[in-house]
Amino acid sequence: MKTLHILKKAPDASTKKIIELQSSGNEVKTIELYKGGASYDKLVADVFSFDKVFCW
């Protein structure tokens, strides 16, 4: 399963742990919006191509 995590701010401990736990056996990608420089075109493409999307 392909899972996308979009981080609007730096993740807290529980969020980090959830992402880390989901990485086991799944393809996980993290987009750190809070760091700036994101390509919104690429983000939208990812949102529709990944199976699950989380916004933290």
Binding site: L33, Y40, D41, V44
Partner: peptide, 16 residues
Amino acid sequence: ENLDHIAGVVKAARAA
């Protein structure tokens, strides 16, 4: 908050 991100995503989604 996050208006720049919201606007960026809205415009990119429409462009797609």
